[in-house]
Design a protein around this nucleic acid. Structure first.
Lengths: 142, 142
DNA sequence: TCTTCAAACGCGACACTGTCGCGTTAGTAA
DNA sequence: TTACTAACGCGACAGTGTCGCGTTTGAAGA
């Protein structure tokens, strides 16, 4: 994450009357650095790397808060477990290795434009966004 | 679901030494009839329509069993809740209404062929399948 | 029809997850 | 330094999913 991006986020929080607490700063830093969706469990481990210890309820509340401010977004993959990732980024998709469970971000070639238009028109449906994940084997597991 | 399809499933179960219990038959019937992913909660309500009452653990075990036999598959949408749907069907995707939460199945136009090829090749990743969901507003909610 | 066997089941226990209310702490501005 | 309130810790709680174990029952054979 670029420093200016970080500064923007912090500025908006301050303007909104929100405190820059150690947990909040640490989470924004972690999400900015990790370019992949994180399980709550993984988040906990990364927090252990800092000196920050918080109650379960506090962490959940903070994630709900960060999501409400569009700083992070929730992602849902095939296993049904909720994951969180940094939100202020280009539209992208995920590659999930079915063997080692590693998740990478991936961008599509230009051809993606119009993906939403592929839907058969008989469905009287106004599409606003989509979610696309690819599953398979990563380089190490092939 | 076609009757022959149903007969095939039951035959394979018998050959595998598995019993055709009331719960199992009811679930296969329900999944065959409902052409959309079902929450555990919705499944419970549909079972109430039959005279079948089972313990929570039994239902979970049965779902795991049916999934292991590829009779049903789990689906995961944006809300992180696990859903189940009949598996023996053509490859398709979902339309999720963000307002009324209704979920429809949808097929793409021919252009879909090659979706897996859109992934930028620098990712040393062997793609086996993908999952694609569209979100927006259905006809009634627009 | 009766017997037999293992698949399937019910039940209770358990750990885990996510949320809530409430009293306390601490970041920020004055 | 003070005051305000966002954020926090804690305990309680309901919901979810799994496990072990003793019991029941579907299905095949006597």
């Amino acid at each position: 994450m670029a420093d200016t991006e970080m500064a923007e986020i912090l500025y908006e929080l301050e303007v909104g009357g929100h405190k820059l607490t150690p947990l909040r700063l640490a989470l924004i830093e972690i999400f900015g650095r990790q370019q992949r969706p994180l399980l709550l469990e993984e988040l906990g481990k990364l927090l252990m790397g800092t000196l920050i210890r918080v109650h379960r309820a506090t962490l959940y509340r903070e994630l709900v808060f960060l999501e409400s401010r569009k700083i992070i977004a929730t992602v849902s993959l095939e296993d049904g477990k909720r994951r969180y990732e940094f939100a202020d980024r280009d539209h992208h998709h995920h590659l999930v290795c079915t063997s080692c469970k590693k998740i990478e971000d991936v961008e599509l070639k230009d051809d993606e434009h119009g993906l939403d238009k592929l839907v058969k028109t008989q469905n009287d449906f106004l599409i606003t966004h989509h979610s696309l994940e690819f599953f398979g084997l990563c380089g190490a597991c092939k």
